[in-house]
Write a protein that binds this DNA or RNA. Structure first.
Length: 628
RNA sequence: GCCGCUGUGGCUCAGCUGGUAGAGCGACACCUUGGUAAGGUGUAGGUCGCGGGUUCGAAUCCCGCCAGCGGCUCCA
C-alpha cells in the first residue's frame, strides 16, 4: 500500500545473567561523549539495537514502538534491569548517527520511568560478554514498526462530509435534491467530488493541443511531470504570472522570495511534512536531507515568525510566485498540465487580527479570484467547504459569497476539522473528460500561526496568534493553461473556433502577402502598427513563406491567430483591409478596416493586461519548428 | 504506487499468424507567382522506446525496464 511505511528498527533481546563491556576505540567520526569506559549489569534484559534509515522519518514513533516491544518482553520475563546496547550489525541500512543516538537516548529516557536502565555508549568499538540464560524466551529478535502519526489523508477518511448546494437567494439544499437542469457543470463537479468514479474516459484534449501549438511538451530526460516550455508557451506563462502578480500586489501583497528547499529535520516543518509522507522530492546535501517546497507556506511562515508585527499592521500580506512548487505525486496521478510534479503557483499569506478581518480579506480575495477567471474568459464552478461548527457561526458569510458569484455553489461540510483550515473555497473548471480541477482557492488557517510561532502584539501589549489566509488567486499557472486549452477544446467540439484571450495570444495579428512583392508592404504595415501603439505591444507577424494564400490562411487559422490580414495590390493602394476576425465580438460595424481600426480592436482587448513582445522573429520563414 | 492499454522517420499513423520497414503531413530542392482553410514534382530522413531471451533470422514471439495515457488511489 502506497501510504504505509514500515519503519524498521531491529532489536535483538537477550535475557542474561549479566552483561559487561569495555570501550576499546572510536567506531565513528563523532561518537557520543564517554561517561564510563566500562560497565556491567546483572539479571538484565539486553536489547541490542540497530536504528535504521527508515526510522529517521519518524523518530518519535520509533522510540515509542521500540520501547513497547522491550517493555512487553521485560514484563513477560519479569526483569527490572534493561541494558540498551547499540549494535549496528543487525542492519545493512542504518540511520545516520545523530538520529540513531536521538532514538537511543529517547528510549533510555522513556524506559527509565519504570526500569533500571543502562545504555552502552554510541559510536565506540566495545568488547563485551553476555551470559545468556537460555530459556525459551531468553532470545528474541524484533523488527519494530513504530507508532505512526496519522496522516491528513487518513484523518480525512475518518471525517464525514455532507454535500449541499447553496443558491444565490440563500437556500441550502441537499446536493442530491437539487435540480441541476440549468447547471450541468455544477452537477459534474458534485459527482466528481462526492463520488469520483468514472468509466468512459480518454486523454484530455489539451495535451495534443499544447504540443501542436508548440506551447509545452514532455521532457523525457527529466522526472515525470516536469515539462519543457517553448517560446509561445513561455510567453503565455509569463503573461499569466505577471498578471496574477499584479492582482496580488493590488490586494496589498508584499512580494518576497524564499528558498525552494527546507531542512527535513526542522522541528516545526517536519511535524507538518510528516502528515504527507512520500509527497516530497528529497535533496541530500552532505548528511542533511532537504525537501523541496510544495507551496510558499514555509518560507513565508519563517519570515512572519521573525517579524515584529503590531495589530496595527494587520492585515499583513506576503506574496510569492512559487517558480517552482514541487509535489511528488504518484506516477499514475500525473496528467498533462493538469497534474504536475513541478509547477508554478502564486501563494499569498494574509495575517489577520480576528475572524472579522479574516472574512473581509477572504471576501476581497474571493472577488479578486473572480476577476482572474473573468480575465481568462473561463467558466467555473464554485465549491465552498466548511468545518461544521464554523459554518453554523458563518452562515451569512457563506450566503454572501454565493450572492457575489451569482450562481449556485457546491457546499461541503465536514463534521470535524481534519486539517489546518476551518473554511476554504475553490473555483473549479470542468474539462473535456468531465473532470473537475481547482484553480483559485483561499483557506482560513487556524493552526499554523501557533505551530510556527507567528505572533502579533495586540492592543493590550500581549502576544496573540493571527489567523492566516492561504490564497492562490489563480491556482497553478500551468493548470490555468490546461483550463484555457480544455475549454477551447470544448468549443471545437461544439463547432466553434477556438481562441485564446487576445492578451494571451502569442500572435495576435498576421499579415499574409499574396506574393513576395508584397512582403515589404506588410513590413511597412507592421511598422505603422508599432508607431500607432504607445503602451501596447501588438504581437504581429508576416507569413512570408513561398506558399499559396489558402495554405497560409489555413496555417494561421490552425494557430488560432485572432486577426488575419491578406495583403495584395488592393491593400497596398488603399491602406484598407478585410481582416478575418476570429470572434464576432472583435468586429466593428464596417466593411473595410484601416490599420488604426485594427489597432483599436487589439487595444480594446488587451488594455490593462501585461504586455510582452513577440517572442521570435516576425517573419514566419525565419522560424524553426519546435514540434509537430 | 497497483492494474490495463499504448510506444514504428520531426508529427499522425500503416505494417506485427517471424524473412531487418511504408504512407500522408512537415523539412529540403525545383516548378508554380498565388486573393481568404492544404498548387505540383522530386530528395533526404528510421539503433521500429531501452535491455535481455527464443530462433538460421525478431518491429513482429517471451521476460525485464522506461515513458505516455486511462482506471484505482491521490490532489497540502
Amino acid at each position: 500500500m502506497s501510504r504505509t511505511f514500515w519503519f524498521c528498527m531491529k532489536i535483538l533481546l537477550l535475557h542474561s545473567d549479566y552483561i559487561e563491556y569495555e570501550v576499546k576505540g572510536k567506531a565513528i567520526k563523532n561518537p557520543e561523549e564517554l561517561k564510563k569506559r566500562n560497565d556491567r549489569m546483572e539479571e538484565a534484559l539486553v536489547a541490542l539495537i540497530a536504528v535504521e534509515r527508515k526510522d529517521e522519518k519518524n523518530l518519535e514513533g520509533a522510540i515509542e514502538a521500540g520501547c513497547e516491544e522491550i517493555e512487553k518482553v521485560a514484563e513477560e520475563i519479569k526483569v527490572d534491569n534493561i541494558m540498551l546496547y547499540p549494535y549496528a550489525h543487525l542492519s545493512s541500512d542504518l540511520a545516520r548517527p545523530k538520529q540513531a543516538m536521538d532514538v537511543l537516548r529517547g528510549m533510555e529516557e522513556r524506559l527509565r520511568e519504570r526500569y533500571n536502565v543502562k545504555r552502552a555508549p554510541f559510536g565506540w568499538y566495545k568488547a563485551f560478554r553476555i551470559s545468556c540464560k537460555g530459556h525459551p524466551l531468553s532470545e528474541l529478535s524484533r523488527d519494530v514498526t513504530p507508532k505512526k502519526e496519522k496522516t491528513a489523508v487518513e484523518r480525512e477518511k475518518e471525517v464525514t462530509s455532507s454535500w449541499y448546494i447553496l443558491t444565490p437567494d440563500g437556500k441550502l439544499i441537499d446536493a442530491e435534491d437539487f435540480d441541476y437542469t440549468n447547471y450541468p457543470e455544477l452537477k459534474k463537479l458534485y459527482d466528481y467530488e462526492s463520488k469520483g468514479t468514472r468509466r468512459v474516459t480518454k486523454e484530455p484534449e489539451h495535451i495534443k493541443i499544447m504540443r501542436r501549438l508548440e506551447l509545452v511538451d514532455y521532457e523525457e530526460s527529466s522526472d515525470s511531470g516536469n515539462f519543457r516550455w517553448y517560446p509561445k508557451g513561455r510567453l503565455i506563462k509569463t503573461l499569466l504570472e505577471r498578471y496574477v502578480t499584479e492582482i496580488c500586489r493590488e490586494l496589498g501583497g508584499m512580494q518576497v522570495e524564499t528558498p525552494i528547499m527546507y531542512d527535513l529535520d526542522h522541528p516545526a516543518l517536519s511535524e507538518y511534512v510528516k502528515k504527507f509522507p512520500a509527497r516530497q522530492y528529497i535533496v541530500r546535501s552532505d548528511d542533511k536531507d532537504f525537501f523541496l517546497r510544495f507551496a510558499a507556506c514555509f518560507g513565508q511562515y519563517m519570515i512572519a515568525k521573525d517579524m515584529t508585527i503590531s495589530y496595527r499592521n494587520l492585515p499583513l500580506r506576503l506574496y510569492e510566485l512559487t517558480h517552482y512548487s514541487f509535489r511528488r505525486e504518484q506516477s499514475g496521478e500525473l496528467s498533462g498540465l493538469r497534474r504536475l510534479r513541478t509547477f508554478t503557483m502564486p501563494d499569498m499569506h494574509t495575517l489577520c487580527l480576528d475572524m472579522k478581518q479574516a472574512r473581509d480579506e477572504f471576501r476581497r480575495q474571493f472577488e479578486a479570484s473572480m476577476k482572474w477567471m473573468r480575465s481568462l474568459n473561463l467558466d467555473y464552478e464554485v465549491a465552498i467547504r466548511f468545518v461544521k461548527d464554523f459554518y453554523e457561526e458563518n452562515k451569512d458569510f457563506a450566503r454572501e459569497l454565493v450572492r457575489l458569484v451569482g450562481k449556485p455553489a457546491l457546499v461541503e461540510i465536514w463534521d470535524e476539522r481534519y486539517f489546518y483550515f476551518v473554511m476554504k473555497f475553490e473555483f473549479n473548471i470542468i474539462d473535456t473528460t468531465d473532470k473537475a480541477s481547482a484553480l483559485s482557492t483561499v483557506q482560513i488557517d487556524v493552526e499554523n500561526a501557533k505551530r510556527f510561532g507567528i505572533t502579533y502584539i495586540d492592543r493590550d501589549g500581549k502576544e496573540r496568534y493571527p489567523y492566516i489566509l492561504h490564497a492562490s488567486i489563480s491556482g497553478s499557472i500551468d493548470r490555468c493553461l490546461y483550463a484555457l486549452l480544455e475549454r477551447e477544446a470544448m468549443k471545437i467540439k461544439r463547432g466553434e473556433k477556438p481562441m485564446l484571450p487576445l492578451w494571451l495570444s502569442p500572435i495576435q495579428l498576421r499579415f499574409i502577402p499574396v506574393g513576395k512583392e508584397y512582403v515589404d508592404d506588410c513590413k511597412r504595415f507592421l511598422r505603422e502598427i508599432e508607431r500607432i501603439s504607445d503602451n501596447i505591444e501588438v504581437r504581429a507577424d508576416i507569413d512570408d513563406r513561398e506558399e499559396s494564400v489558402p495554405k497560409k490562411i489555413r496555417d494561421a487559422e490552425r494557430e488560432w491567430i485572432p486577426i488575419i490580414i491578406v495583403v495584395g495590390e488592393e491593400e497596398r493602394r488603399s491602406g484598407r483591409f478585410k481582416p478575418r476576425l476570429r470572434r464576432d465580438s472583435l468586429k466593428m460595424d464596417k466593411d473595410t478596416y484601416s490599420l488604426n481600426d485594427i489597432y483599436r480592436i487589439i487595444e480594446r482587448e488587451v488594455r490593462g493586461y501585461p504586455q510582452e513582445k513577440l517572442p521570435f522573429s516576425p517573419l514566419v520563414s525565419e522560424r524553426a519548428r519546435f514540434s509537430g
